[in-house]
Design a protein around this nucleic acid. Structure first.
Lengths: 342, 342
DNA sequence: GCGAAAGATGGTAGCGCTACCATGCAAGGT
DNA sequence: ACCTTGCATGGTAGCGCTACCATCTTTCGC
């Protein structure tokens, strides 16, 4: 008696169909697919033939339900269009493309509340691992991460108290290095220009401030920020604001490269010589900083590598190999260019 | 006798726990959560209390298995870092953030083979809808989309033969409009500069060619392309190549804004006057085109809106409302700026 | 040559949820 | 009073897969 095609499920072949066709038990098919080493060469071949003939694809939902673990990486970032996170995400995708893991991404829009909501949603699927941007989760979110029961990698920052693992670099040091470079180049009235002051931007600002203070140059009127999202246009406006507040400005450390590019364009438009009258330093070193005229000094960050490293660590943890170091600092590099070559 | 906590499943509350606590059947809990209208006010309240007290979150995997349909939108794009797709994806995320649907994204790296692989993977989960970039799927991929058993929205282009639904605009018309604008502005030796000639770029090039030919201006030596990925730096190099091949070049239609920005920077560096000696038109109208100095004429595309519209159509189809029009053309806008104001 | 250990395979019983099909009951028509 | 109709609720039986345990075979030590 043939098993009647059930009312549900579009009639796609199941593991039982494969097992019947290959003349083995369903569990052996399951094993052949997941742990080939535990099935004899012969059966493995037989099963492969049946799989190919039927066009069998395992149902990830059934798999997740039965094994209480979904083959999914949950990835939470504050923005999808910000090139910085896009690069990290690209690193994550590339590292995972040959693995059985799928990726589920969430956009927190820089909101702690939204992050909590998404974390809850993600955790309900029992993901294989979670990758989240930043270390400033709400206590609620942190608890969710701690009890998620899977490896957790926080990315983009460094610190001593990760939930589980951490990959990134020091924004404070980056901000300080950028500012010190301007000081060394002879600039004195160095402004900080930043939009969307998320925790990472705050730390860069703190680094700027530390450098300025230890050189005896800090003045609060040198700092220009806005809660708006970064954009090149905004960079232009902020430089205008900064100059209005402090006409003697002779250098700017920009919170990111979009702002820096806007600042550069505004200088050209206002006929302010770069680097002579004003020195400019950006942050992240997007490709266009090198191509710009004049080319723009920037703090290069290894965003793609952060994504790759985060996945590598998560995969190791899944495989049961707890890494020797739970915190990896990938550092940054100050790339000196024409915009500060005075 | 209390039910022993099973060996599997971390002991999170299940629908049965909620049902017991609320003194109702499991199925009623299920209904109260998914179709509140079909459960009486009283029970609904009772169930809500139990849900809150237990901190119950439905298991999406079990749900997907039982209902043969996962609450997931599969999204396939060729690149994650290309701002164009990032914007579309942002529109998709924003439109879906208040819905129960999760998003699973795939990066095809502009590869048809990779697209097939991902499509197969995605389809195996029985997603609620699929959104894919472009209309040039391989026959294999197209079949997968047709038999996916869910709404499918192709995005970024327009055409008359979608798999199911289609949202975008005409790249051919965009390319033609940009080129015609240059011609009208008085430029004659107008080059096309493009990297990563995907099908959409090809259509823009075809539009350029049509405009040039009907003005009697086309010359194959005016076209400069490369298979490399677009970048600002590459724009600089390509302009150098184009000028070496054709020193009399007096205008360029750039396949995208990154290239256009590179072209602009190269002009400044080589002291070529823009728009006097060379006119520049970009494509997509990223924010920086407006901020640039001189500001750059570009073809504005409604990428975020494409994402939103795609989701709207998919949601309508899921709800059983087949849209009156299966193809939506969101058009484009030529934004004239200083770079062509001769 | 025998018992133990290790390896290969299979059967059974769920994972947590929902589709399907009752069942019970109130409202409405005749 | 009867039968219908519709609504609210519940029981049962899976969805397709894997964890767990049992069984059977093969290999090895002494």
């Amino acid at each position: 008696m043939t098993r009647p095609r059930s009312r549900r499920g579009g009639g796609r072949p199941t593991i039982a169909d494969v097992a019947r066709k290959a003349g083995v038990g369903a569990i052996t098919v399951s094993r052949a697919l997941r742990e080939p080493g535990r099935v004899s060469e012969d059966l493995r071949r037989q099963i492969q033939v049946a799989v190919d003939e039927l066009g069998y694809i395992p149902d990830p939902n059934a798999r997740a339900l039965a094994s209480a673990r979904a083959e999914v990486f949950g990835v939470l970032v504050p923005s999808l269009t910000n090139n910085v996170f896009a690069e990290v995400v690209r690193g994550i995708y590339d590292s995972l493309s040959d693995s059985p893991f799928r990726i589920q991404m969430g956009n927190t829009h820089y909101s702690g509340l939204e992050e909590e909501r998404l974390l809850q949603l993600f955790a309900s699927q029992r993901p294989a691992a979670l990758i989240v941007a930043g270390i400033d989760q709400t206590p609620q979110s942190r608890k969710l991460l701690e009890t998620a029961g899977c490896p957790v990698v926080q990315v983009m920052e460094t610190g001593h108290d990760p939930v589980d693992m951490l990959v990134g670099f020091s924004h404070f040091d980056g901000g300080r290095a950028a500012t010190e470079h301007l000081i060394e180049a002879g600039y004195r009235r160095i402004g900080f220009i930043g939009a969307r002051m998320d925790p990472r931007s705050q730390r860069r600002l703190a680094g700027y401030r530390a450098a300025m203070e230890s050189a005896g140059l800090f003045d609060p009127r040198l700092v220009t920020t806005t809660p708006l999202l970064s954009s090149v246009t905004l960079g232009r406006e902020l430089l205008r604001d900064a100059l209005a507040k402090m006409p003697s400005l002779d250098g700017v450390f920009c919170n990111n490269d979009d702002i820096a590019l806007g600042v550069l364009f505004e200088c050209r438009r206002a006929a302010i010589a770069v680097p002579k009258a004003i020195g400019i330093v950006g942050f992240n070193d997007l490709d266009m900083m090198q191509a710009a005229f004049p080319s723009v000094t920037s703090v290069r960050t290894h965003r793609y590598e952060i994504g790759r490293q985060a996945v590598a660590m998560a995969l190791a943890a899944i495989a049961g190999r707890r890494p020797q170091q739970r915190v990896v600092d990938l550092g940054f590099e100050l790339i000196r260019r024409e915009s500060t070559a005075r």
